[in-house]
Design a protein around this nucleic acid. Structure first.
Length: 573
RNA sequence: GGGCGGGUGGCGAAGAGGCUAACGCUGUGGUCUGCAAAAUCACCAUUCACCGGUUCAAAUCCGGUCCCGCCCUCCA
């Protein structure tokens, strides 16, 4: 596996001492709901983490919260709240959003306010070592003392001084020196310290908290590319003198989300709150959008992008649904206890295909299927072999893409190819062909596993809602009867009503199939159906009006015609 | 001004010396269908901002030009 290390500006082979990977990602300053720009590193590094898990690493993941900061203090003053209460509130809100997006929880979520003692200790030590100095109630880091300063952001001290956009503060030895400890202004939040009442600067927290939970050297440190300078540069400058060791082995930075080619940020005011987006699009669609571009590239946002992602992802989801549908028609016991580790199977097949070609693959496939299928002899056809070989090859390509600096865009491309192979194979399957069914199920499960690295397919199978399902079944029965009676006017009306409720009906050779993404709104659906029934009654088409009543009755919905109009109620209520 | 990164079809986006320039959206055609829709399959860039150069071979390497984004200030 190779990953792009900002420190060396090149792709490097990923090596760790054990199977444990120590990973630290800079989290948000919590003074507001998180926006789409904040969501990008969340999803990117969650994907990195999931892929490392998938590869068999044991990831120790730490993400901080900056809960002590000017912005929090200002915002709290506006809302007349205690700063730490405001920060805590938005940390809670953060978890609502992160959980909704399916971000796997970190092992530890340290907060600055819980680590003031550690921070004071670290600053004291930096002063002792000559890397920091006190001026009045402030403590500054002495950048000149750290000769390697600039190694991450690839700029020299001279460049920075030449840039001269640094605020001149005569109390500092050099303009580039940054605050480790800030004296409290009157009435402001503070902690006592050897230098008087105050609070920590921004950068010191990450150095202190990351080493506290992960040790002196960590494997992967992630964050947005705007943090490279000064934040991460400063983290190195603080941590390395304190520990005497290399702070971070691999620095990973994600690119930015822009809106109309301009950076999305809170200060520019062009940001989109993640929660608002999640109200309109499922989490895996948002993840798809974020990960369908390489993590280091800029990503432009506008409202058409998520719609495109939704359509694209629907294609992948549909493959899984098609396989589910095939299997629902089979005796599930045949399938239930065959292979549990699909990935292992396809990895083995992929290796076989790569090393020895098709003949070896066929032998291997026969052997593996015999083993798992628990039948004495299994003979696979050429078509089945070709299918499995195609899947195994695409598996290899997927892994290759991900191993190359997490090339998710390329890997997703292979996922689409995998889906297409499955679709094509499905269309050739004869329904009684158990072996093909098993093979396609293996492929489909594997396909799903790969997709889950990206957080796809999280809610592919609708949670069963017996009430809604039986009502839906009743309405489909009515429509089927109408179609059988060639009453296409009614059949189409029924279909239109269902479409309005975001339910898609597909008439296939096997009969109608229906799909819906969001939970059914029974009330408005029934209101519309009763409207149709009233029209039928007005047209004196009592046959179908009665049929609607009967079918709904069977779904425990009682229809009452009263002089005031038609009502419905739940029979069980 | 300094430091990074980028400009690929109608759109999004991979590819980083040689296989048909992936994949997705849109569009077109076929299959399915009572008709639609959906689904599905197929097709859709002789060309990679521009100009020179290196090479048997360049979207990919080198030089120049023109654009764009990020950082140098709180930011993911």
């Amino acid at each position: 596996m190779r990953l792009f290390n900002t420190l060396t500006s090149s792709k490097e082979e990923f090596t760790v001492d054990s199977r444990e990977v120590k990973m630290y990602v800079c989290g948000p300053t919590t003074y507001n709901y998180i926006h789409l720009g904040n969501a990008r590193p969340l999803v990117v590094f969650d994907t990195v983490r999931r892929y490392l898990d998938f590869k068999g690493y044991n990831v120790n993941y730490v993400q901080n919260f900056t809960d002590v900061d000017d912005k929090i203090i200002n915002r709290a003053a506006e809302e007349n709240m205690e700063p730490l209460d405001l920060a805590a509130r938005y940390i809670d809100e953060y978890f609502v959003d992160a959980d909704a997006l399916g971000i796997k929880r970190a092992q530890v979520y340290p907060r600055v306010s819980d680590h003031i003692t550690d921070i004071i200790e670290a600053i004291s030590k930096l002063i002792q070592l000559g890397y920091a100095y006190q001026v009045d109630g402030d403590v500054y880091y002495r950048v000149k003392a750290f000769t390697e300063y600039g190694k991450l952001s690839h700029r020299s001290l001279e460049d920075m001084l030449a840039g001269a956009r640094v605020e001149i503060d005569n109390r500092k030895e050099e303009p580039v020196d940054f605050a480790l400890w800030k004296e409290a202004k009157p009435g402001e939040l503070f902690w006592s310290s050897p230098w008087g009442d105050g609070r920590p600067g921004w950068h010191i927290e990450c150095s202190v908290m990351s080493t506290r939970y992960l040790g002196d050297s960590i494997d992967i440190h992630g964050g947005g590319s705007d943090l490279i300078f000064p934040h991460h540069e400063n983290e190195i400058a603080q941590a390395e003198p304190l520990t005497g060791k290399q702070f971070v082995k691999y620095w990973l930075h994600n690119g930015f989300i822009t809106v109309n080619q301009e950076k999305m940020s809170k200060s520019l005011g062009n940001f989109f709150i993640l929660r608002d987006i999640l109200a309109k699009f499922p989490p895996d669609v948002v993840r798809f959008y974020l990960i369908n571009t390489h993590y280091r590239s800029p990503l432009d946002f506008d409202d058409t992008k998520l719609e495109e992602a939704r359509r694209a992802l629907a294609r992948l989801k549909n493959t899984v649904s098609l396989v589910d549908e095939l299997l629902s028609k089979m005796d599930s016991n045949i399938i239930r206890d065959i292979v549990t580790d699909y990935t292992k199977l396809f990895s083995a097949l992929g290796t076989a295909a790569k090393n020895q070609g098709a003949i070896a693959l066929e032998t291997k496939l026969n052997a593996l299927l015999s083993e798992y299928y628990r039948h004495e002899d299994v003979t696979v056809t050429e078509q089945q072999t070709n299918f499995v070989m195609a899947i195994a090859q695409l598996h290899e390509k997927f892994i290759e893409a991900m191993d190359d600096d997490f090339n998710t865009a390329k890997a997703i491309g292979h996922l689409f190819e995998l889906g297409r192979e499955i679709n094509i194979f499905l269309s050739h399957i004869i329904k009684t062909d158990t072996l093909s069914t098993i093979i396609v199920k293996l492929a489909s499960n594997h396909f799903e596993n790969l997709g889950k690295i990206f957080g796809f397919f999280s809610q592919i199978r609708n949670e069963s809602n017996p009430e809604a399902d039986s009502i839906l079944a009743a309405l489909i029965n009515v429509r089927n009867s109408a179609r059988a009676a060639k009453n296409y006017g009614l059949a189409d009306r029924m279909r239109d009503v269902l479409n309005e409720e975001q339910i898609v009906i597909e008439d296939t050779a096997e009969g109608p199939r229906c799909k819906y993404e969001n939970s059914l709104k029974v009330e408005s659906l029934l209101a519309k159906v009763l409207e149709i029934r009233n029209e039928l009654k007005a047209a004196k088409n009592f046959e179908f009006a009665d049929l609607i009543r009967q079918e709904l009755n069977m779904a425990q919905i009682l229809i009452e015609d009263t002089p005031e109009g038609t009502r419905w109620k739940n029979a069980e209520a």
